[in-house]
Design a protein around this nucleic acid. Structure first.
Length: 420
RNA sequence: CGGGAUAUGGCGCAGCUUGGUAGCGCGCUUGGAUGGGGUCCAAGAGGUCGCAGGUUCAAAUCCUGUUAUCCCGACCA
């Protein structure tokens, strides 16, 4: 991609509405743009990051044999009446009417829909277990949207649902999701913790949350110094310094951003929707269910909150919008831009996703924008090209290295391999 | 939903107290100089001052209402 053609409006100053660093940087670096309170457009750079997150999420779900589908955002009231949640969900459910004055909701979650979708198919124990997921825009009419992508009224979520003949099967699947979630958040480069969580209005028999550690987090994690215990403070309201209920540690507190939540739902939804199957003894039984969510757009925000410095964002390589930023400077010299174009083409051929800053800007402007965007590797093509060398700059470590053009690919692949 | 604040060009802000018809920095356009960390000079373009009503000869400025956005709290798979 040539930067002169990329829609990436960077700002020197953060819009005054943004108060936390991730919100400010995502706005300044041109990743998102606000449309209304809690509603954002993902600009091209932001969209690329979202896509990268989704790629990881998809791969880890495929790995546990969970298949992807896509359900409607628009859901009729009747479904929500069946679960009883039309009345209990409250003001957060975004409600609307069609032209015939029939009631609909924009889905904040999809237990009602998925239960209806699988109902006819899952009539035998032979078809169990089954798990499916989708990645979709969710709607919640938050009383107070805030902090950019942290608490939006419209956001991208991955939600998965599993169906089982008994609790033992649910336990097995639940553990697979827990492992998949560990893999996902690790691959995203997040500093996170799994904690015991409240079941909330979802009901069910067990749940855990995955929290990104961050001071701006809205949740409080209580954990023990020996690592044997971690919980949302909603479940165990323990004070700092108390002995932990498990193990020998003492309690500490930390702030976290909830990125994922796994639930054992039990039979709550299958009972209200009358979803039953015949077991091996030809007895009719209610399905056991699990559900598993990840805030895709929230991951982008959480990463920026964790990975930044005074100059801008520092993307982990798996999420970065581009792998390499080729930055020619002194562009008055025509051979420099020619060399940069050659390097750009050859790195693309080598499989890197490359952004070429072909704009007629001065060096300082290009460096500032590059730092702000946070692409992990930068190749500066300048005067030193006269003796055949360019500079590789590592955004993550700050290291800079002069290399001959003929050695560039090799040097780059070594540095790339060591990126986080 | 309670409490607090803000709304003036793409972004950041001043002007409002003490009404006289809008200004600064950045950005943008053109020209020139510069050319390895947001360069400098000059000339330009761009604003129904959130919206509606009121007071007044005259409203960005005063009054009333309203909408939007942000923060704190409550709420929150």
């Amino acid at each position: 991609m040539k930067q002169s053609r990329l829609f990436a409006p960077t700002l020197k100053e953060a819009p005054s509405d943004a108060v936390i660093v991730s919100h400010q940087l995502l706005l300044r670096a041109g990743f998102i743009k606000q449309v209304a309170a809690g509603i954002y457009t993902y600009l091209p750079l932001g969209k690329k990051v979202i896509d990268n997150i989704e790629t990881i999420v998809r791969a880890e779900h495929t790995a546990i044999d969970c298949s992807e589908l896509l359900m409607p955002a628009l859901q009729p009231k009747e479904l929500w009446d069946q679960s009883g949640r039309w009345d209990v969900y409250g003001g957060e459910l975004m409600r609307l009417k069609d032209r015939h004055q029939r009631d609909f909701a924009l889905g904040p979650t999809h237990e009602e829909v998925i239960t209806t979708v699988v109902k006819d198919y899952l009539n035998s124990y032979k078809k169990l277990p089954l798990s499916v997921y989708q990645i979709q825009t969710k709607f919640r009419d938050e009383a107070r949207p805030r902090f950019g992508l942290m608490r939006g009224r419209e956001f991208i979520m991955k939600d998965a649902y599993s169906f089982h003949e008994d609790a033992a099967s649910l336990d097995v699947e639940y553990d697979k999701f827990v492992q998949a979630y560990h893999n996902i958040f690790t691959r995203c480069g997040l500093d996170f913790r799994m904690v015991e969580a409240d079941n909330g209005q979802m009901g069910g028999s067990g749940s855990a949350e995955f929290m990104a550690l961050a001071e701006v987090g809205e949740d409080t994690i209580v954990y023990s110094t020996d690592g044997d215990f971690a919980s949302n403070i909603e479940v165990h309201d323990l004070a700092v310094g108390e002995p932990a209920p498990v193990g020998n540690g003492t309690i500490q507190h930390a702030k976290g951003i909830e990125l994922g939540h796994v639930f054992k739902l039990g039979t709550k939804y299958s009972e209200s929707f009358g979803v039953t199957f015949l077991d091996v003894d030809q007895k009719k039984q209610a399905l056991m269910m699990g559900c598993y969510g990840i805030g895709i757009s929230r991951i982008m925000m959480a990463i920026v909150e964790q990975k930044n410095d005074e100059f801008g964002i520092i993307w982990p390589k798996n999420l970065a919008p581009f792998d390499v930023h080729v930055v020619p400077i002194c562009t008055k010299t025509p051979e420099i831009i020619d060399h940069a174009l050659d390097i750009y083409a050859s790195l693309q051929q080598a499989g890197y996703d490359v952004l070429l800053d072909d704009r007629p800007e001065r060096a300082g402007v290009k460096f500032k924008d590059s730092d702000l965007m946070g692409i992990p590797l930068r190749i500066v093509v300048g005067k030193s090209i006269a003796d055949g060398s360019v500079q590789i700059a590592n955004r993550q470590t700050g290291e800079k290295l002069e290399v001959k053009v003929e050695d560039l690919k090799e040097a780059l692949s070594e540095i790339y391999a060591n990126l986080k």
